[in-house]
Simulated assay, not measured.
Amino acid sequence: MSAPRSKRRDIDGVLIFDKPLGMTSNAALQKVRWLFNASKGGHTGSLDPLASGVLPLCLGEATKFSQYLLDADKGYITEARLGMTTTTGDAEGDVLEMKPVQVSQADVEAVLPRFTGDIEQIPPMYSALKHEGQPLYKLARAGETVERKARSVTIQRLTVLGLEGDRLRLEVHCTKGTYIRTLVEDIGAALGCGAHVSELRRIQAGPFDLSKAVTLETLEALHAEGGHLALDHLLLPSDSGLEDWPEVQLTEQTAYYLNHGQAVRVPGSPAFGKVRLRDQTGKFIGIGEMTDDARVAPKRLMRFSG
């Protein structure tokens, strides 16, 4: 008989994972859940297998707040290969066209202002967006192309890091939903030679950057030495992605009523918007939202075991 499976444990927190190349975001989540022996987990938006870098993973009750990290701004370093366009906009696709590259850094600097600020992007066919219930990438693999509506995104910062031959390195800071592949293709078109993404590394997601990220090698080494308990110190608090939100301190009485679904009045609360909630001991218990009559209403609360 096979040995009984150990019970997964309830553990809450956020791990900033440095996702390696070639791994899907879901595979990264399942690997981290296994290493932590966590009963529940979720990621904060997919990072392509061909991209590496910052992928915040939420365990336990922290998954209730993953949406707010999904909505956060992102930062990337990308290498664009000039002179070659591909079916997917990255190195995985088939070559569509090759052109000679006679581009200087000054040429690049001259076109970048067109792609800075509020811009419109047409999502690529090789994306997870859905058309009539089907992901676009599945239709693309079947040879189909469908019309996609342009979407507004904001490129907050776009910087040239270097140009060597046909290899252009860029740093991009942008709002959620920005397709770096599309950005690189559009820059290549503006330069007259075409381009595709040959490397992509996410360096920031919301308040988290690579300085907080933990590699798979580190996780596996700690796990080999001390099991899943040896990893717990790497978890950030469940509200670590919400640190720029205003905080409301509750009394024992207001925490009780709020935990039972009632809006409460707390002196000194903001006039409007979402807030982080802490109970009388200072423990984070969830998020609330200010009502029109200046009360704090529960929006998403932590569930504590025991």
Rank of each mutant, 00 (worst) to 15 (best):
L231C: 11
I122L: 00
T24D: 11
V103F: 05
G162N: 10
H196K: 01
G143Q: 07
G194C: 07
E289A: 06
K31S: 07
E185H: 09
D12C: 14
G177D: 09
Y257R: 11
L70W: 04
T154G: 07
S52D: 00
A195I: 04
L219S: 08
E79Q: 13
V160F: 06
G42H: 05
E147C: 02
H43S: 05
L47W: 07
D10F: 11
D71V: 06
A195C: 08
A110S: 13
L129N: 03
S66L: 00
V184H: 01
R202L: 02
L219G: 08
A140P: 10
K31V: 02
Y137R: 11
L250S: 10
M302Y: 06
G60V: 06
A213E: 04
G261M: 01
R201L: 05
V54H: 06
G22Y: 11
L236S: 07
R201A: 13
K19L: 03
Q280D: 14
G117N: 07
I180L: 05
L250N: 04
F208S: 07
V214I: 15
V101E: 06
I11E: 01
L191G: 02
V184P: 01
F272Y: 06
D293Q: 13
D90V: 09
R169S: 05
G41K: 04
I187P: 05
L129Y: 12
K74W: 02
R202Y: 06
D232L: 15
R300P: 03
H173P: 00
T159N: 03
V214M: 02
M84N: 01
T88R: 02
S66H: 07
K40M: 04
K130G: 06
R148W: 05
G45Y: 12
G288V: 09
E144Y: 13
Q121F: 11
E225Y: 01
T63I: 04
M290G: 02
I122M: 02
H131N: 14
L210V: 03
R5F: 04
L234E: 09
R157D: 13
S39A: 15
M23Q: 11
A110G: 01
H223E: 12
D107T: 05
P207Y: 02
A80W: 00
A271S: 15
L258Q: 05
K130E: 14
K40S: 02
E199V: 12
L139A: 09
D293P: 08
D90L: 13
E171P: 08
V266I: 15
C174E: 03
K99V: 03
A271R: 15
V146A: 08
A72Y: 04
V248F: 09
L139E: 04
K19C: 09
P207T: 11
G306N: 10
Q253P: 00
M290C: 06
P237E: 09
R81Y: 01
M98E: 15
V32R: 12
D107G: 09
S104F: 12
T291W: 07
L21R: 12
G206D: 09
M302F: 03
E185N: 10
F36W: 02
G143M: 02
Y76E: 04
H173M: 08
A213F: 03
E109T: 10
K176C: 00
I155Q: 07
R33H: 12
